[in-house]
Design a protein around this nucleic acid. Structure first.
Lengths: 131, 131
DNA sequence: CACATGATTAACTAATAGGTTAATTAACCG
DNA sequence: CGGTTAATTAACCTATTAGTTAATCATGTG
């Protein structure tokens, strides 16, 4: 299934070939042929076409018409969706930096005082049997 | 194929079940059994175990030991990787908002002046034959 | 029109993903 | 120890994915 937009977008980004295509597009519009060249020996056009379909459904690119060419360009909206989603987890990565910070302070403190820390055994946690 | 960390992380986020697990974990640590309950009729424990392996390799969670329970918790680092990657595309979504903004201004201007915009046909683009 | 170029579609293949149930491992409890 | 609970591993199934080559569609040009 995986029909929801966020899943489509994340899944699209999970492929390195597709991310390479996006990186290329930061430098400007490109045709299918242009996009296929950079891939060692050149990836086949049908393969690129498929990737572009995935990227388009993911809202990460949009496509134009220019005679027989169908140039692709980045579509900001898709990226914003991802940015907004991950933003809701910000405090978790900031927290871990806080903890790292605290740990580093602990280290230097330990160096000063040579303190031996007692290892306290936790018991009876929330995971204990409930009946 | 798909071995790089960023691919693992994005691919992990591409599954709605796994994102639901992450959402649950924002409220605190949880065991496999606790994580399986919310899924309509309860998803099987082996399925959850597999998802957790994916999330762990993606750097999005870490796991502890508490007797026979293996509680999971969020790992901020994985989220930061994603945030950093998407940040490099920020200007593309901001640009599109600028364009929207400009468009809205154009609209209200048109309302004021009733201007008819000439449609200019582009010709001879970069996609032309290079022979 | 005939033909060349660019892209897509069709058909196929091999590998991977997401799920299941059954069996196994690990740890606690009486 | 024997039993129970939590989780993982194994084996299996089906659907999807990423790629291929060959054929088709679309467009511009002599």
């Amino acid at each position: 299934m995986n029909q929801d937009q966020l899943s489509l977008t994340f899944a699209a980004l999970g492929d390195p070939t597709r991310r390479a295509i996006l990186t290329r597009l930061t430098k400007g519009e490109a045709s299918v042929a242009e996009l296929s060249k950079p891939f060692l020996g050149g990836m086949s056009a049908p393969a690129i076409t498929k990737h572009l379909k995935v990227l388009e459904k993911a809202g990460l690119i949009s496509r134009g018409r220019e005679a027989q060419w169908r140039p692709c360009k980045l579509n900001g909206q898709g990226f914003k969706e991802i940015a907004d989603w991950v933003e809701t987890y910000r405090k978790f990565w900031e927290e871990s930096f806080d903890r790292l910070d605290e740990y580093l302070k602990t280290l230097s403190k330990a160096k000063e005082t040579k303190t031996k820390v007692a290892k306290t055994k936790k018991k009876g946690t929330k995971y204990g049997r409930q009946k």
